[in-house]
Amino acid sequence: MIIRCDLCPKRCMIEPGQSGECRIRVNLDGRLVAVTYGHPCTVHVDPIEKKPFFHFLPGTTSLSLATVGCNLHCKNCQNWEISQQNPEEVPASPLSPAEIPKLAAAHGCRSVSYTYTDPVVYYEYTADSSLCVREAGLKNALVTAGYINREPWTELCRKVDAVRIDLKALTDKFYQDICGATLQPVLDSLITTRSLGVHIEVINLLIPTLNDSDREIRALCQWIVQNLGREIPLHFSRFFPNYQMKNLPPTPASALIRAREIARSAGLYYVYLGNILVPDGENTFCPECGDLLIERRAFEVLKNTIENGRCPRCNRQIYGVWL
């Protein structure tokens, strides 16, 4: 019997014995089975800034895990050795949802991040683990492309505390040509996340000639301002040639600095530059008085003056989840 998976907009029709496009949701005897459940292929203690989350428990570590598989097929994927592989080819370790908060606490982590590939496709593992993590008093963070249908996304958002969504471009053409996906579901996920009051940070990888024109960057920033708000942190990240996209050069520093100017002039308060060391690229300033609130360098927090989520100088509330 053919099964249709309604988890993500791909809505794969899966024949018996076959998997969907994400490789890990399999039709076994007419039942859809998540075959990587409880079996991450990678588990590490990362600084939360590596995700990147800059306004969510800064300076803490996060137990970060992933199973193989992804529902997008980005030509520039940095983690293709786990995202674009079949589970048969990648070793994994048993780790039940109940064990995750214990492991996180043992390593002094304040949160668990479902990351590296895309937690959307190992949905059931993420959802069950999130409940155990929350019960243990820790927080949950998703690092995702947000390519998922609205109903399951809403359900998942209720179980987590922070979401970092990759908004790869503001054109359907980019999503179709580079990622094998479409734009609208990602925009819908962003709006749903915001409406549910879950902490959001957005990342945009600037790829030379593909999504780095002033017009595109401005449109993306304006969309965020109009639909999510000026306080949503936006991270521009530097591209490096990788996987099936080795023909393009790394993003020049000047392009990232220009993108930051455009974002600020569009009205965004918190704009960061990642994968590159440039002056103030990772620092947080108060949008009211301009005070330096958090100084960072390469995932490390050097200084954090935020008190009770507010600027110590002018008392302005700073968007985020603070310690």
């Binding site: 099964i3 249709r4 998976c5 309604d6 988890l7 949701r25 399999v26 039942r31 859809l32 089975v33 998540a34 075959v35 990587t36 459940y37 409880g38 079996h39 949905y123 059931e124 593992y125 069950d128 249908n149 109903e151 399951p152």
Partner: peptide, 8 residues
Amino acid sequence: RVVQALRG
């Protein structure tokens, strides 16, 4: 049509 899969 299925949204949630069985836990493998």
